[in-house]
Amino acid sequence: MGVFQSSPEAQRRHFMQSVAKSVFACMTALLVLPVIAIVGLLFVRGGSALSFEFLFSAPLQGMTAGGIWPAIVGTVWLVGVSLAVAAPIGVLAAVYLNEYAGDSWLTRIIHLAIVNLAGVPSIVHALFGVGAFVLFFSLGTSILSASLTLAIMTLPVIIASTKEALSAVPMSFREACWNVGATRWQTIRHVVLPNSVAGILTGVILQVSRAAGETAPILFTGAAFFLPHLPQSVNDQCMALSMHLFTLSTQVPNVPPQITYGTALVLLLVVLSVNTTSIIIRSRVRRRRRW
C-alpha cells in the first residue's frame, strides 16, 4: 500500500459514482425494455394471423374475419398524398431558412411557428382539418382533406431534417460557386441540394412513418370505419391501418384477438421498418461523405 491508498472519502465517492451509474443504467434499461416487450407481445399474439390472405383480403362478417387490405391501401393513399404536399413545401421551406433567411425577426417567427406546428396536439390538427378543409374549402371528408391535415402536421419533420442536411454542406462550397459567377439558386440547385439528398430523404421517410401512424388527425377528416370498396380518387374516403386498429379494439365487439393483434403488428412493423430505413440511410451518409 503506497501513497495512492484510498482514503475513506475517496472510497465513498467511488461508491457514489458506481451507484449513480447503475441507477442511470437501470433507468435506461427500463426504457428499452418496453420497446422489446411491446414488439414481442405483438409478435407472439399477432404473428400467427400474418398471412398472405390476411394482408390481401377485405374484412368480412362485420370485421370479425377476413383481412386488412383496404386499410393498407388507404394508408398508402393518405401517406402518398400527404407526402406529395409536404415534401416540396418542407424542402423549400428549409432551403429558405438555411440559404436565404438571415438572423432576422422574421426567421425567429418562422422558427417559432415550426416549433408550434410540431407541438400542437394532433386532435387540434384534426379540428383544424375539419374547420378548414372539410367545411370551409368544401373538400368533405375525403382522402384529400385527411392528407392535407397530415401534411401540415408532419411538415416540421421534413423541415428540420432537410435544414440539418443543408447546413452540413460546407460554406466554402457555396463561396466557391459564387466566386465563379454562379447565382444563389444555381449554387443551391447544382451543389447544395445534390449533396444533401440523402439527408433530405431521411426526413421524408420520417414523415412517412409519422403520417402512417397518426390516427387523430384523420378520424374526422377522411378515414372511415369500414368501406366495402377501395378508394378510386382523392375525393373518396378510405380506411387506414391506424384507424382500423382503433376501430377493432374499441368499437367492434367479438373480434378474434389475432385479427386485432395482427393489425397492430402490421402497423408497428410498417412504422418501425420505415424508421429503420431512415436510420440506415443516415448512418450510411455519415460514413460516405464526398468530401
Partner: peptide, 26 residues
Amino acid sequence: LRRRVGMVAPLPVGLPMSIYDNVAFA
C-alpha cells in the same frame, strides 16, 4: 461581374463533383 473576376481563396476548394465538372461548372 464575378465572371469577369477570377477569385482564388486561401484554402483550396474542390467542389464535390468530378474534376471535369469542377472546371466546366462556371
